[in-house]
């Protein structure tokens, strides 16, 4: 295990200052993430206010059961990542490793479900942009009936928002994988576990954004 002193950068006075600085930096980064998504939420609100009936109708094409499944999966992953921070503070690194891998697994399940949702939509002509042309019958729904003005806008917003959210999930998976290898190599201790804490913060934000996306896109 690396001793605490080698993890202290020379331009910080002590670990407390370094940890506080890192945490404040992460919180500020999360603020920028919120504002990035805020632009898309505004676009959603504007077009929904203008064409509420189209948005209501188009949202029927999204399978709320898959959305709900993904919500549960992400909530579970937030729980496991919170537990991993708890255990890294207590120095129980085996549990940390298991919990981080569980988080990674949840994120992977989320992306697999998303993959099936996307490909299902693509195969019935629901795509991002100019090629939008819904067709075919699924679950007793005639998709061609949904080829109405502004339905394309709904799906543009759906693909852009969930797409950028998905990119964040993928980035999170990469970080969890990297963290897991560092835990396995014994890099973290109760004295120094900043990357685990910061990744946890990031992951909760990714989770929270989905918690807003799910009802706005799938349910209402």
């Amino acid at each position: 295990m690396i001793s605490a002193d080698t993890t202290l950068k020379h331009y910080f006075v002590n670990h407390e200052q370094q940890f506080d600085a890192a945490k404040l930096g992460m919180w500020l980064f999360l603020v920028t993430e919120v504002l990035l998504f805020a632009g898309m939420f505004v676009a959603y609100a504007v077009y929904r206010a203008w064409h509420p009936e189209v948005f209501l109708q188009a949202s029927e094409l999204l399978d709320w059961r898959l959305g709900a499944l993904n919500t549960i999966v992400l909530l579970a992953s937030s729980f496991t990542v919170a537990l991993s921070i708890h255990f890294v503070q207590k120095g129980e690194n085996r549990k940390v490793l298991v919990l981080l891998l569980l988080t990674l697994l949840c994120a992977a399940i989320f992306m697999v479900v998303k993959y099936f949702e996307y490909t299902d939509k693509f195969s019935h002509g629901i795509v991002l942009g100019a090629g939008f042309d819904p067709h075919g019958i699924i679950d007793g729904k005639d998709y061609s009936k949904y080829n109405v003005p502004y339905a394309a806008q709904f799906f543009s917003i759906y693909f852009v928002m969930t797409g950028i959210h998905g990119v964040h999930v993928l980035v999170g998976m990469g970080i969890f994988g990297w963290l897991a290898t560092r835990v396995a190599r014994g890099h973290f201790s109760p004295q120094w576990y900043t990357p685990v804490e910061l990744t946890g913060l990031y992951w909760h934000l990714v989770d929270i954004i989905w918690i807003f996306l799910f009802p706005l896109l799938y349910l209402i």
Binding site: T32, L36, A38, M40
Partner: peptide, 22 residues
């Protein structure tokens, strides 16, 4: 402020490339 120009540029990029109609 800067994240907002970021997402605006992403949307403009997609508008130009894929015609997403925003």
């Amino acid at each position: 402020a800067t994240p907002v120009i970021g997402i605006t540029m992403v949307l403009l990029f997609l508008e130009k490339l894929l015609h997403i109609g925003i």
